[in-house]
């Protein structure tokens, strides 16, 4: 159990689990002493799921996503991605990562930004051009290929960063509060687009958010987390079906799930 990020466990192998975490622990050593960021995380995510991590700031939801992405190493427990260690999965380019900020390189055009992972991964020129075109169309940015990032709005920049994450066709999309910095109207619009994209591409999506409606609207399952130390408080299945217009947010089924999420957040949150 004390082995770190080794795929000795049978999780995910042969089955449909793409992410299997067992008894995961992560402690950061900071100047102010150790910070217990994750504690006893047990989680399995199946192929094609849309799973949201929700919780107050400091609950470790971003940290958990970064562990999946091999951007942080767990201090204890095991985690496997597609039956591999996170590092092997990262090297196999198993996922595309969308950050809180678009993180587009300002000296590259939108097209060149989308080509960045393709260049690193050695796709040839013709293939890069094809993928730039296809992925820009996928996020409704056709025709913006030669614009520089600063010429686009925040929402468009974030869509471009999603196109960049999808350009090399990874199995998984890891998204860390991608719409957190956008206003509500743009956010609703992008949520709808994201659902359509997910239906079209059939990818496994792991999505970090602190918005309850966003989590309920998008997810097949919602992982409610609580802080100090970061742990999973509850996992709520969100069976609203594949077809979700924005109006679904006023239906009783939606509100019922949102209520459960809110209760979970409240119970897990200590107001000291």
């Amino acid at each position: 159990m004390a082995a770190t990020s080794v795929d000795t466990e049978a999780h995910g192998q042969g089955g449909t689990s793409v992410i299997a975490a067992h008894d995961l622990d992560l402690t950061f050593n900071t100047n102010d002493g150790p910070v217990h960021a994750l504690s006893g995380i047990d989680l399995e995510i199946d192929r094609g799921e849309f799973v949201s991590f929700i919780g107050p700031s400091g609950c470790g939801k971003t940290t958990l996503l970064r562990v999946i992405a091999d951007l942080e190493k767990p201090t204890a427990g095991s985690i496997s991605i597609n039956g591999m260690s996170p590092e092997a999965a990262r090297k196999a380019r198993a996922y595309g990562y969308v950050f809180q900020a678009p993180a587009l390189y300002p000296w590259r055009t939108i097209g060149k930004n989308i080509a960045l992972p393709l260049e690193v991964m050695g796709f040839d020129r013709a293939e890069r051009q094809r993928r730039i075109r296809d992925n820009l169309a996928l996020v409704d940015l056709a025709g913006f290929e030669n614009k520089f990032p600063w010429q686009l709005s925040g929402g468009m920049q974030q869509r471009a960063s999603i196109a960049r994450a999808l350009s090399f066709d990874p199995d998984m999309l890891l998204m860390d509060e991608p719409f957190g910095a956008l206003d509500e109207i743009v956010r609703d619009h992008l949520n709808e687009q994201l659902l359509r994209l997910w239906a079209k591409t059939q990818k496994t999506v792991v999505f970090v958010t602190h918005s309850i409606p966003e989590a309920v609207f998008l997810s097949t399952r919602i992982v409610v987390m609580s802080p100090r130390p970061g742990r999973i408080h509850d996992i709520i299945t969100c069976d609203l079906g594949p077809d979700r217009p924005l109006e679904i947010r006023e239906t009783p089924a939606f509100l019922e799930i949102a209520h459960r999420v809110r209760e979970g957040l409240r119970a897990g949150h200590s107001y000291d």
Binding site: A69, L71, R90, R93, Y95, Y97, P117, V120, M121
Partner: peptide
């Protein structure tokens, strides 16, 4: 981090 996710 972005470059790291591409294993650059």
């Amino acid at each position: 981090d972005l470059m790291r996710t591409y294993n650059a």
